[in-house]
Amino acid sequence: MKWITARRRHPLAGYVVVLLALAVFGVGYSLVAPSADRAEAQVMAAQTGADPADDATVDIEEGRDIWVRSCASCHGLNGGGSDNAPDITGAGGAAVDFQVSTGRMPSSNPDAQMPRKEPAWDREEIDNLIAYYEQEIGQGAGPAVPEAAPGDKPERSDFEDEESYEAAKEEYDEAYDAYVEGASDTQAGMQLYLANCAHCHSWSGAGGGLTGGHWAPEIHDATPRQIYEAMLTGPGQMPVFTDGAIEPEDKQELISYVKTLQAEPNAGGIFDLNRVGQVAEGFVAWTVGLTLIIACAIWITAKQRAHD
């Protein structure tokens, strides 16, 4: 202990203690926090050699290739599931599209909840996979992909030249606006969202914690089609909202409500504190507000030296 005694009065000792404490907290946190799945998500965003998607025909053979290579090892060749993956014969094309297009599948860790990440395949390949699934595995069971809701934005890398990309993008934007603005009953959309969704995904769509280390993800990046599919299929801990309970046009109202809310600029200022709400506001009041005011108080009352 002599070593410490000798140095603890050093002018820098205080900073060293603070740094050490931070390091201890950091390491402790990394041990407590669940595996690095979320960090992995970024790494997993491995790019695929994308082919231009101008070919609209579906290539079932390629779908089978993907299935055999990347899905069958867990879900089985027939989709019947295994010890570490569920039976997905009745899941439906919507479930496949949701899981694969949000990058949650293929998963590297079947025990953990998968975060959203870049999909492993491009749109065309996913379509091929779905076609194969619907023809060979699901055979019509389960909900189909809700084509009416706009899906992924076109990616520049999927197109050969700027022009065709611009055209596809324009087409997409039009479809998107038509879908979101086609909803007119804010009351219904809002009430559906606040009564059935906000308790997990939060009023702003920012997500929230669940029990057992699960969480409800942020839905800002989700396309209208993915939100629709999530409601239809109930991925993970999420319950199912069938087209009978919430009809397609009401689902459109709901999606429109949350997407419009998300897109709205913050009338109260450029800093929206991630729309977390009161916890962030209190934090800012203490750390920014009170600190600045006290700094002013110190300026006013600071001792003056003769040369001041």
Binding site: A195, H199, S202, S204, G208, A267, G268, Q278, A285
Partner: peptide, 26 residues
């Protein structure tokens, strides 16, 4: 510059709706 308590984004009160991360002021 910092938006506080954006009630227009929260939506009106109904006794049957709730949001995650619900907090009172600090």
């Amino acid at each position: 510059f910092v938006q506080v308590n954006p009630i227009h984004l929260f939506g009106p009160f109904t006794p049957t709706s709730i949001t995650s991360g619900l907090q009172p002021d600090w």
